[in-house]
Design a binder for these strands. Structure first.
Lengths: 222, 222
DNA sequence: TAGATTGTTAATCGATTAACAATC
DNA sequence: TAGATTGTTAATCGATTAACAATC
C-alpha cells in the first residue's frame, strides 16, 4: 500500500507512528461520522455516546472506548461537541480533505447520484460524468455536462481522481471497470451486481442494498 | 422480537433450537450470498473458499469455518456447489421465500431501483410504488403504476409487506417514515441521509455510499 | 497416484461489556 | 449540590488465523 504525500500519517508527540486502524474500528468511526454529519446539519451542538448508540446500534461503551483511544474528546456530564468530533474523526480517518471522483453512467441512477449531496457532504466532489451514449454526451446533469469516455484518462490525471463510481448496466460494468483501472483510478464503487475482476492494487466496493436487507430481515425474523 | 410462522426456526435432529447467528456471521453469510448469486448467474458450478475470499475479502479459513458450522457443504479437492450453497445459506438466513416490499418515491432513484433486478435477485418483490406528486400518480414505472400515498396502508396489509424503501428527498423522509410505520412496515431502507426517528420495534437501514467510500479510502491511503 | 481443497484443531488476538470512579 | 456522562478497568467472549490431516 502506498502513502499519500498530501495525507501523511499523523505523528504523535513521542514520535511514534500510530497503528493502522483495525477493520472494525475504521468501519465504526465511519458510521459515527455519518450520524455526526447529519446531527450537525440539524443544528445539534453536543451528542452523548448513548445518542450515538441509538442511531448506530453500536454499544455506547464501545463508542466511548473507540474515541478515547485517540484523545479525550468528550466532556463529562455533557457529551461530545458535534463539530469538533467530526473533524477529529476525519483526521483519524485521514479524509479531512477533498477527494475528486468521476461518475460513469448518466441514466436514472447516475442522475440521482449527481443530484444528491450525499457524496459532497463527505468531501467527495464529482468532477466529471461520463456516458457511452452519444445522445447523452453534451447534455447537462446538475452542474456538469456529460462527457465522452475518451476524455476519461485526461480527467483522471488532471484532477487527481482516485475513486470511480460505476452507475451503469451490468453488461457494461466490467469493460468500464477496465477503462477506469487503465486511467489510474484506485477505488471503484460498483452499483451493478457484477463481480468485477480488477488487479490486486484496486479496491472494488459493490453496493448491495438487497444483501443489506437480507441481513436486517434476519434479525427481524429471529 | 417475533417469530414468523411462515419461517419457523430450523429444528435439529436432537430437538435443540439453533443459536441466533452473531452479527458478524450473519453479515458474512449475506456477503457470500451476494457473490454466489452472481457466480450462479455467470454459470459457475463450483467455487472454492479461496475464490469466495478473493471477492469478499474475508479470509478463506474464516469462510470454511463459517460454513462448516452448519453442515459439510463442500467437497474436498473441488470446492462448493454454487447452487446448493445458495439455498443452504438462504435456509440459514431464513430468507428462502419471497418478501414483498413497497417503494416510496418515483424520481430518478426510485425509477433506477424499480428498473433493476438487484432486489428481485434476492427474493424481494416490489409490489407497489408510491409518490406524493399528483402528476406522477398513474404513470407507469417498469411493470408498476405509481400509486397515491393514501393506498399505503391497504397495500401493506393485503400484500403482507414488511420492508419499505424510501427513495425521497431528505425533507420528506421523516414524514413518510412515520406513514410507513403507521401502515405496519417493520424495516425501512432509507436512501436519504436523514436520521430517522422510529419506534424501537422498527429497524432503519440507511444507505451511505459516501461513508463506504471513506472506509475504502482509509485502507487505500494507509 | 498427485494435486487440490475441505473441515477442524489449537493458539492468539481483538472486540465487547458491565461497572464505576472521575468530573463536568 | 445533584444529575449526567465520560474515560477506564477488568473480565469474558467471539473472531481470526496458521497449520494440517482427511479426502475428493
Amino acid at each position: 500500500m502506498s502513502t499519500d504525500p498530501l495525507n501523511p500519517p499523523p505523528t504523535f508527540t513521542d514520535g511514534s507512528t500510530p497503528e493502522r486502524l483495525s477493520l472494525g474500528v475504521a468501519a465504526r468511526l465511519s458510521r459515527y461520522l455519518q450520524v455526526l454529519t447529519q446531527a450537525k446539519k440539524m443544528g445539534k451542538e453536543t451528542i452523548s455516546s448513548q445518542e450515538l448508540s441509538d442511531y448506530t446500534h453500536v454499544n455506547s461503551t464501545q463508542i466511548r472506548r473507540d474515541l478515547s483511544g485517540f484523545g479525550k474528546f468528550g466532556k463529562r456530564g455533557v457529551g461530545y461537541n458535534v463539530e469538533a468530533l467530526v473533524s477529529q474523526i476525519r483526521k483519524i480517518l485521514r479524509t479531512a480533505g477533498q477527494n475528486n471522483i468521476v461518475l460513469f453512467g448518466a441514466g436514472h441512477l447516475g442522475r440521482a447520484i449527481a443530484g444528491s449531496d450525499i457524496f459532497a457532504d463527505h468531501g467527495f466532489r464529482v468532477v466529471a460524468i461520463f456516458d457511452s451514449d452519444p445522445e447523452k454526451i453534451g447534455t447537462p446533469v446538475g452542474p456538469q455536462t456529460v462527457r465522452a469516455p475518451a476524455d476519461l484518462t485526461s480527467v483522471v490525471e488532471e484532477e487527481d481522481v482516485v475513486v470511480g463510481v460505476l452507475a451503469v448496466p451490468s453488461s457494461a460494468a466490467q469493460g468500464l471497470a477496465d477503462d477506469l483501472v487503465a486511467a489510474g483510478v484506485r477505488i471503484i464503487f460498483n452499483y451493478s451486481d457484477v463481480l468485477l475482476d480488477v488487479p490486486p492494487e484496486v479496491t472494488v466496493h459493490t453496493s448491495s442494498p438487497a444483501v443489506d436487507l437480507l441481513y436486517a430481515l434476519y434479525f427481524y425474523l429471529t
